[in-house]
Structure formats: C-alpha cells, structure tokens
C-alpha cells in the first residue's frame, strides 16, 4: 500500500490501564495501516483490547487508561500530539464511532432529532437550525427510517433497538467522516436486525466512501463486510490478512481455534464445534512467552519462553507464531 493511500496508520501502539493492582497492558504494541475506502475487521474475545485500541484512536480513553507508546497517524497528522480541543473537533467530524448497545447509547431525555443535529452543530457553528434539521432528516431517511420528519421529534425510548442503531449510524455519518469505528454494532441486536444493519452499513460504506474499522467477536460478521481482518489476542494482533486468507488459510492457532468454534452453514452441518479451551490470560500478570501459549494445543517450549515475532506470508498476511519458524527451519531456506 502506498503512503498516499493510507488513511490511518497505527504503529506499535501501547495502551495501559494503571489500576491500583498494577499496570494492565490492554494494548501491547499493535501496528496496522488502513487505506481509504477500506473495511478492516478487528476480531477477538472480550478483553483482547480491541475496543481500547479503537478508543485511543478517537481519544475516548478514560482514566486510568493512557497511551504509553507508539503513534497514530491520520492523513499524515499525528493524532497523539493533538490538543484536547483539536481532538474534540476531530471526533465526530473526521472519525466517528458507533457502539455496541443502542439501548443505552442515546441520551434518553433528548429527542433523536436534537441529538442528530447536535452532531452537526458542534462542528459547524454557522449552520442554521433549518439546514441542520433538513440534513438530519436526510440522514434518517438514508439509514432507512420512515416518517423521518415525525421521528425526529421522538425520544429514544420510542424507537426499537434496530431503529436506534440506525439512528446511531445516521448520527455517526452526518458529518461525512472519513473513518467510522464500529464497536460491536450488531452484537446487542436480534439476528434478523443484525443482518439488516450489516446490509445498511455495507451499502452506506460504498455510497459514502467511508473507511470502517469494524470491531467484533463474531467472525461471521467479519466475512460479511470486511476487506481485511486483524485477529487480536490479549492486547496483540496475532494474525492479520485479507478476509479470504484469514478464512481459508488461517495460520495462527488462535485464528484456527476461532474458526473451529464458529458454526458454519455452508459446510457439513454434522461437523462438531470445537471450543477454545481455557480462559484468557490475566493481563495484570501476562506470561513471559506467547500470550496464547497456555491455551494453545500445539504449544512448544520456546512459546513459553519468548514472544513470537511476526512471520510475513506476503500480501499483508502476517502471523505471530513460533510454529511458522519451526516449519521454515524444518523445510530449510527458500522453501518456496
């Protein structure tokens, strides 16, 4: 990917939470680059640091969380050097975010319209009320809400879950941001509604040319919408690649485990689902070696001693596992 095509570049980002019990390395050195008009999925179980990583991009990290290293570059600008006011103007304008639970993410005491228009007016003081309202109605129609004019004056509790998530999407896109971060946007919804929302996001992405970072623990959703996928485990990206590579040639044992534990409708229905055993590691006391080693079925002695480096399989497909090096050594140099 050429530099000019890069919308956002994250390099060796480290985020820690300083709790009374000690430092929790929620994000421990992750790097990726995302191009314009690209959709990247970030997959991982809860606590893997995927949301924390997103929050640090948009500057929503709250005490006791702090970025302690690395860089985030957005269109060539260093986001970590922004002042709070610059960050505020950046949020919602260039990058916006939608969240997991649409039931609690809208302020219950203000109308949907009021909250939509606020997203506009806090970045554009000069816009008139009528224009803001017209734009908000337009956005509501765009996300498929009927009677938008009437709906504008209703309160969140008068909306269904799916409707609220649509309103959230409208609110996130109202300033035409270049990047949308979607933090588990469909997790709290019914399955049928999930599909509708995904469909909507897909079509809006095409229409508005927005890049998306799509955070989820659901691989099925990833397959649906993403171009590239980062698989996160315990604060690190363990495997990254485009969606086909990840699904059809998964390399990291964790990714394989995830795929094996996912029900697939397209394959043999009798195939058993295999869960990944064990529980995620305690980030307060991370192991010395590979974070996944204690749960890995194919764990080697080195895995318990050293953190694995990334192996590059070309076309942006990388994976951090000692097994790759073992294979390479067994095969000898230049096995290609």
């Amino acid at each position: 990917m050429r530099e000019t095509d890069t919308l956002i570049k994250v390099e060796d980002l480290r985020v820690s939470f300083f709790t009374p019990a000690g430092e929790v390395k929620a994000v421990d050195g992750i790097s990726y680059a995302l191009g314009y008009n690209e959709v990247m999925g970030v997959v991982g179980e809860s606590g893997s640091g995927k949301s924390v990583e997103a929050y640090s991009i948009i500057g929503l990290l709250q005490n006791p969380g702090r970025v302690i290293g690395g860089s985030i570059t957005f269109e060539g600008e260093d986001l970590l050097a922004y002042t709070p006011e610059q960050m505020r103007q950046f949020r919602g304008n260039k990058v916006s975010m939608i969240f997991q639970n649409p039931m609690t993410c809208l302020n219950p005491v203000y109308t949907i319209g009021d909250q939509l228009m606020e997203a506009l007016t806090c970045h554009d003081k000069s816009i008139s009320r009528q224009d803001a309202r017209a734009r908000a109605i337009e956005m509501l129609e765009l996300v498929g809400i009927n009677n938008a004019d009437k709906r504008m004056d209703q309160y969140p509790h008068e909306f269904s879950g799916g409707m609220r998530q649509r309103a959230m999407i409208a609110m996130a896109l109202i300033c035409k941001p270049k990047l949308l971060i979607a933090d588990e946007p469909t997790t709290a919804l019914d399955v049928t509604i999930q599909a509708q929302i995904l469909e909507l996001m897909k079509s809006l992405q095409k229409q508005e040319n927005t890049s998306i970072i799509f955070i989820t623990h659901n691989l099925g959703v990833v397959a649906e919408i993403c171009d590239r996928v980062s698989v996160m485990y315990a604060g690190k990206i363990v495997e990254q690649g485009n969606v086909n590579d990840i699904f059809y040639q998964p390399l990291h044992p964790y990714t394989r485990g995830l795929l094996a534990s996912m029900p697939r409708l397209d394959e043999d229905a009798h195939e058993r689902l295999i869960p990944i055993e064990g529980t995620p590691i305690d980030l307060l006391n991370p192991p010395k070696g590979c974070n996944f080693a204690p749960r890995c079925k194919d764990c080697r002695k080195i895995c318990l001693r050293e953190k694995p480096p990334y192996a590059d399989f070309g076309d942006g497909h990388i994976s951090a596992c000692w097994l790759h090096f073992m294979e390479a050594m067994n095969k000898g140099v230049g096995a290609e």
Partner: peptide, 13 residues
C-alpha cells in the same frame, strides 16, 4: 525449543 510443551509446563507459566 521446538519440542512440544507439556501440560504442567503450560500451567506453570
């Protein structure tokens, strides 16, 4: 180093 690690080794970390 590339020998398989035993369960006890895994648990010890």
């Amino acid at each position: 180093d590339f020998e398989a690690a035993s369960e006890t080794e895994k648990e010890s970390v």
